[in-house]
Simulated scan of single mutants.
Amino acid sequence: MAENSMNAELQKAIECLRIQDVYLRNSQGDLMEGFDPKYSPEANDLAVQFKHVVTCEDVLQLQEDEKEVTLFRVHIDLGARWVVLPEPKVEGGSEEKEEENIKAVIEATFLAEYLIEGEPGQKALDEFALKNASYHVWPYWREFLMSQSMRMNLPKVALPAVQFASNNRESAGDQD
């Protein structure tokens, strides 16, 4: 029953929101000291780990050409890091894990901006932020990650066409 009410809230938001813009808020790309992806022998053995989290949302009231406009913005943090995974060690019958050896990181925060038409309510906006905004941001992230990794000489990363945020069962409003 709760899933049906969440689907109803999501549908309400879909009916009230119109995509206006998707843009990069900030980004960072780093190669760790001593690592050169072009010449390091370990460059061929790197694993890639990903981050995808809806971090917050906000509603803005703007004055535009003598008309009040209400916008809904969703902030999504995305990232990839190239790591050398440690070999598991067995000591005293238990497996101990060492931390990954991070070699490179690319991270970005994208904003998806929507015009609010009507009154969807906070619950509907929360559901939309967690379950729909990533659909609009994802193509921009895919292109950004591919081009940045190639510019940094990192192994090519081809992301799938769609991915959901990792916090899609939490409330985005709780992330502020």
Rank of each mutant, 00 (worst) to 15 (best):
P155I: 11
E95A: 10
A112P: 12
P86C: 13
G79A: 14
R151N: 08
V53Y: 14
F50V: 11
V157H: 06
D77V: 10
V48F: 00
W82N: 01
P37N: 12
P139D: 07
N132V: 07
E64C: 14
L60E: 15
E68Q: 15
E143A: 09
N101V: 08
L145K: 01
E57Y: 06
F72R: 05
T70S: 08
S149G: 12
L111G: 07
F72I: 01
V53D: 11
S147H: 15
W82C: 03
F72E: 07
L159N: 02
E113T: 05
V69N: 01
S149T: 11
L145P: 02
V59H: 05
E127K: 09
I116E: 03
V69H: 03
R151S: 12
S94K: 14
K51M: 11
D126R: 02
A112K: 00
E98Q: 10
P160A: 12
V59S: 07
V83D: 00
V69F: 05
Y140N: 05
L78G: 04
V137M: 01
Q61S: 04
D45A: 12
S149V: 04
S147L: 15
F110N: 00
V83E: 00
Y140R: 05
N101R: 11
S40Y: 00
V157E: 08
H75C: 08
F128A: 02
